[in-house]
Design a protein around this nucleic acid. Structure first.
Lengths: 245, 245
DNA sequence: TCCAACCCTGACGCAGGGTCAGGGTCAACC
DNA sequence: GGTTGACCCTGACCCTGCGTCAGGGTTGGA
């Protein structure tokens, strides 16, 4: 006959665990000796080890009781389920290992590889990290708000970077972020952007596209705010002129 | 800007989880909009995903905060630790899969292979399942109470089964379990056991060995109880006789 | 006889959320 | 402009599977 700590040691659990199983009715309370100590049979050890085997495998205690009293057929089916679940958890942990390894590596965790590639393309072009981060944030918001639009946008962006003219403008905008809003170079840049917008509006049918791209991230830069304001004004004028003609 | 459910969906968690992280101070409370709704930036999505990546890997929430604000060196060391721990859990789950598969298979889970082999040897000899179970329980108790003695006992048992005479006696005992205590065949068996005990006492230097083996499991059988009683009595007489001579 | 190492019951604590109560908002359609 | 359904808010209790503490009694060896 075993004391509770001997039983617990046999199954590799704590005394508290055994008492817990009594409390929830999973392991029957054994007889007591003269002084009220619980006194266990070898069968209790067998039962406890079977319980632990299932509990270790992640079966909730509440299910174990029913399981151990089930018919062999149901039991076998349940075992198969549990095994499948275990394998699933193993795969999951393996996946988590992969992700953990990427934790140090910036945006790889948050964005799909195609977008990460675009961000890296921007870095390769020499665009500043601050601007790249704004771009990253824009992608994150887009994915949360309108995931449907992401694939098309990926194509557009890549097309833009495939075009040297557009790329040059992009770089120019990036450098302009710290300029004074009244810097004379800004006027030349605005002219270029306006011309770019006119030609690309014709191509793609989308209007105000450039303004949209810049506006969401222009809060931090007075120069960009001026760009947006002037471009908006000019587009307005063009529409009025067309209307009058 | 994102609402709480959009943010939660982006990271694949529930709204409740995000609020929980605010509550424990893991994720900073964002600004509110005019109606008191939380309004999240893209950076919050990045933070949340990083938190989940660590939490999924089993890092307690309480540690995550410190971890994300740690120096790159410490951070890298912690990541290595976490990865090691993940691998350990994967190995553990794999082991649990193995054990689960053995759940249907009786005592394999509870006893070391050498003992299982002995039990199977008993079955092969034609010893009844009831007796085998009693033997199994004896082994379990022995392992719990005096694990040190197990290896020697394994050798003894195997030696006993290697000896045809002993094996025959074992089988005879097994069949006697259901006999009436006054069955005349029992007297012949007792004589044989007594002779066996005398000769083996000389060999091994252990005395009362047989009685010890049987006594613990004789509760269920009146015939065995009589065997133990008679053998004890005779051994007593022998000791008295030796003393007087 | 004393001490450490057991045993007992009962109760609270913990992570990581789930879930309900009781209420306010928003957007769209009729 | 009213209704509907999907959101949002706070606060509070519930869950699992034990750990841990409190406040005792028992046992076995030096």
């Amino acid at each position: 006959m075993l004391t509770i700590s001997q039983l617990a040691a046999t199954a590799g659990v704590t005394v508290r665990t055994v008492r817990h199983y009594h409390h929830v009715g999973l392991l029957p309370e054994p007889d007591r000796d003269a002084s009220g100590y619980r006194s266990y049979s070898a069968q209790a050890a067998v039962d406890l080890i079977r319980i632990r085997t299932l509990a270790d495998a992640g079966v909730p205690l509440a299910r174990i009781d029913a399981l151990l009293h089930a018919q062999p057929t149901e039991f076998a089916a349940a075992i198969t389920d549990i095994d499948v679940e275990l394998q699933r958890r193993i795969d999951q942990l393996t996946e988590y290992r992969r992700r953990i390894a990427e934790l140090a590596g910036g945006e790889r965790l948050v964005l799909p590889p195609e977008v990460v590639a675009i961000l890296n393309r921007m870095r390769d072009l020499g665009i500043g990290e601050r601007r790249v981060r704004l771009e990253r944030d824009a992608w994150i918001l887009m994915r949360a708000l309108d995931p449907h639009a992401v694939p098309q946008r990926i194509r557009d962006k890549n097309a833009a970077f495939d075009d040297p003219g557009t790329t040059r403008l992009y770089l120019a905008c990036d450098r302009a972020v710290d300029w004074d809003p009244h810097d004379p170079r800004l006027d030349r840049l605005i002219d270029d952007l306006d011309a770019w917008e006119i030609s690309h509006e014709r191509d793609s049918g989308r209007s105000g596209y450039l303004k949209l791209v810049i506006s969401r991230i222009s809060e931090a830069s007075p120069a960009w705010q001026r760009i947006v304001a002037v471009l908006t004004h000019r587009a307005e004028q063009r529409r009025t002129a067309e209307h009058n003609s």
